[in-house]
Amino acid sequence: MQSLASYTPAFLKELYRKMVLIRRFEERAAELRSLGYIPGFLHPYIGQEAVAVGACAALGPHDYITSTHRGHGHILARGGDPRYMYAELFARRDGYNRAKGGSLHIANIELGIIGANGIVGGGIPIAVGAGLALKQARQIAVHHPDDPRARRADGVAVTFFGDGASNQGAFHESLNLAALWRLPVIFICENNLYGEFTPQHKHQTIRDIATRASSYAIPGLIADGNDVLDVYRVVSKAAEDARKGRGPTLVECKTYRHRGHYEGDMGQYRPAEEVAFWLEADPIKNYRRLLLAGAICTEDELRALDQAVEQELEEAVAFAKASPHPAPEEALEDVFVESYGGRALL
């Protein structure tokens, strides 16, 4: 934990609000799924909120993220609207993806969200491509300052992935390529100690995934993934390097998911004392204590923030419930762009 003095109260409160928003979004999603509103998978982000919120707090309007199975937190932290997210989870027409994606594929390029991903490690190379486009934007800014793409000349691409993905070839290929081309990419590994159901020590021989950076001669930093300010500090450093053309960084955030791999997995493969330890290290509970101890806000103010989140989510759920189901024939649309009417080529 660190000194609060260097941050504005508004900034600190916003970090809290975002983490609570994610926590409650996920808890409600689990409930809504059990009530039958959500037909597909859910991989709750509960317990890891400090990573998404701390990392995205270091990002600006011209930055891009790729996300994972466990992507709701990243999308909310990046500015995703709970209304369109619930509508997508409910498979309704007003969802971010018009009911064609679901939890694993929520994307919105305008918000800088290239997408969650159903494939472990699948988003990592895509972020390298975003980094390449952002590096090109720096050239465009020099030669054609009026080109709209010049605006993102200071952009960075962030890719979130888990400890499991750090064993994929895509991870290694991408680190190598981004390092070679000095691309503005931040690789954020959320080490929650499990690749699906398999504990870290049974899927790799290292404890600190950040050490893999040394194979590519890039910085490898470790953050306390349950401390939102530590994540913010480390990712800010990586972002500054990337923006200044110093190339990529691998950031490992040590964290834990409170629940199973997906909603319905009871996570019984995890020792009870391990779970108890990490529940005690809850990123929201501890941050709440910190804000109170630092006199950043009062108990009442925090309660008011909590209530505002509940209100926002209540309205989001109502919005999603009211959103129409897609017509079955819509399945044929959006395969291709307008050149063929966008429809499936039969």
């Binding site: 190379p125 975003a130 486009a133 290929e173 991408s174």
Partner: peptide, 27 residues
């Protein structure tokens, strides 16, 4: 800057081409 020799990393190369394209940079 426009003709990019890559490592022998087909997955990363295609993902990179895709990621750039999604940001409006044709590849």
């Amino acid at each position: 800057e426009r003709v990019l020799d890559t490592p022998i990393s087909e997955e990363a190369v295609i993902g990179t081409a895709l990621g750039a394209a999604l940001l409006g940079v044709p590849t």
